[in-house]
Design a protein around this nucleic acid. Structure first.
Lengths: 125, 125
DNA sequence: TGATGTAGTATCTAAATTGATACTTAGGAG
DNA sequence: CTCCTAAGTATCAATTTAGATACTACATCA
């Protein structure tokens, strides 16, 4: 996903498939989750670490930096000791909220599906 | 993204973050694009190749297989020579359509943003 | 004097993803 | 007899992503 040396829109025929672009912004391994938690409000670096202990510091830094570069989140540094940095959604980032919420809803409903079930949905009772 | 040896839900505190699950299903490098094109109707292997020449055969096969495993798409093999295989969305796959379309709309609107613009949206005129 | 806490870097390694290239299968056309 | 087609596989190499571990700065607390 998202290889900025080549960049989104690698597919010439696709002259910028909009879905591809969107996934380029939110499709990183942890980005969806980070954005999801940012919907509730600003978060600090170590808060994310507590919420998601499986993400390493390095990964957290990298993913947050990419989101920042894309203008999706804002990074507010307080020059204190110990340091304090708050992350929040930008105005631009807020435009992604409906997508994140729809993804949350979908995941909520289907996350317990195990295998393929042949693509069938359980019939309504 | 999506490392099925470890699997979705690697984050214990997250006991299955729904957003993470959703991205596990549709977040593969080409999956969004493939699903997007499947919304119009069934597609054959080489049709995808024509639509997206940047995807290699191998990648196309792998991504389609993963989508099939997840029950999102159906693979219909016609035993002919030369062979014919048609891919289509399953009933389950159809539940993803609203997300894909929302991602398309968002991408449509914002794909021409270059850098970060400081997270600001252009003010309405 | 030394430990504590936040928000990271730096470095190195391991694993996963992706790509390039060649090869397969089988029947019909020339 | 050879070529063509569609839909792949197989194999190997390159790239990218991710993880582990150690390290930093600085004010404050004990």
């Amino acid at each position: 996903m998202r290889n900025r040396k080549i960049g989104y829109g690698e597919c010439p025929n696709d002259q910028g498939c909009p879905v591809e672009y969107t996934l380029d912004v939110i499709g990183g391994k942890w980005k969806g989750v980070l954005l999801y938690h940012l919907i509730e409000g600003t978060k600090r670096f170590n808060e994310f670490r507590r919420i998601c202990p499986a993400v390493t510091q390095r990964m957290l830094t990298l993913q947050l930096r990419e989101l920042e570069e894309d203008g999706v989140i804002h990074r507010e540094v307080y020059h204190q000791v110990p340091p304090k940095v708050e992350y929040s959604l930008t105005e631009f980032g807020l435009t992604l909220v409906p997508i994140i919420l729809l993804m949350r809803d979908w995941g909520e409903v289907y996350k317990n599906r195990s295998g393929s079930q042949n693509g069938q949905l359980p019939s309504q009772s």
